[in-house]
Amino acid sequence: MLKIRLYSVIAVAHKDCNIVAEFIINKDDDIFKGHFPGQPVLPGACMLQILKEMTEAALNKKIRLKKADQMKFLALIDPSVNNTLKLDISYVLTEDDFKINAVMSSQSGPCFKFRGSFIVLKP
């Protein structure tokens, strides 16, 4: 899990298949020593995991990505400049999966857009 080590949640609101979360990136996480040395950038891979972890926490379910139809990485996030991020998730639950549209943004605008589906894992 990246929660706690890489980010901490400030606020979450969950209503009518919409989750809105605000969180702070820990700029001192070791991940930034390697991505990249002297030039910290929040990895796209971590944005995807934050989306998954936030969804799991809000739904209280364990999920796994089935298919990301499209993910766009629109801006580089340097955590020493922009460390407060917002995530807007809207989802539709179907019988065997659920579809998600999500946008992560900083004060400067969107940095990550996601459209795809996850499966719910049996406990």
């Binding site: 990301a68 499209q70 990485f73």
Partner: peptide, 14 residues
């Protein structure tokens, strides 16, 4: 090397 876009990312198992 920055990832700009990923499409049709399918996972069958982790």
């Amino acid at each position: 090397g920055y990832i700009v876009q990923v499409k049709n990312f399918e996972i069958f198992a982790l």
